[in-house]
């Protein structure tokens, strides 16, 4: 079972308290009516589905109820970091150096 750190509660808790909420940092188009079908496809359906460090969202469903972001390696399932939704996207090279 994964152990996940909630950046709001500042506690590391079992996976069962959390729900996965898909890839992170996908911004909804600011002006929806000007967006082409291909851009809608990219926003709605295309995912990086990366094999390696993955930027993703989780929700502390059975805790504070808030969404937060995380970087998790999809090969080892190890979390490199979890951070609040309004924090900037952490740079991957720095995270990888830190996890060494």
């Amino acid at each position: 079972m994964l152990l996940i750190h909630c950046p709001y509660c500042n506690q590391t808790l079992p996976e069962l308290e959390f729900t996965y909420a898909g890839e992170a940092h996908i911004a909804r188009p600011a002006d929806p009516s000007s967006v082409s079908d291909e851009e809608w496809r990219d926003f709605l359906f295309i995912r990086t589905n990366v094999k390696g460090p993955h930027y993703e969202r989780w929700r502390h469903f059975h805790g504070c109820g808030r969404y937060f972001n995380a970087v998790r390696d999809t090969v080892s399932d190890r979390f490199l970091i979890t951070y609040k939704t309004d924090d900037p996207r952490p740079e991957l090279s720095k995270l990888l150096e830190k996890s060494k």
Binding site: M1, L16, T19, Y20, D77
Partner: peptide, 12 residues
């Protein structure tokens, strides 16, 4: 519930 390439999966 989460994407992964580990051919394991969680026990829950």
């Amino acid at each position: 519930q989460y994407t992964s390439y580990s051919q394991r999966g969680g026990l829950p």
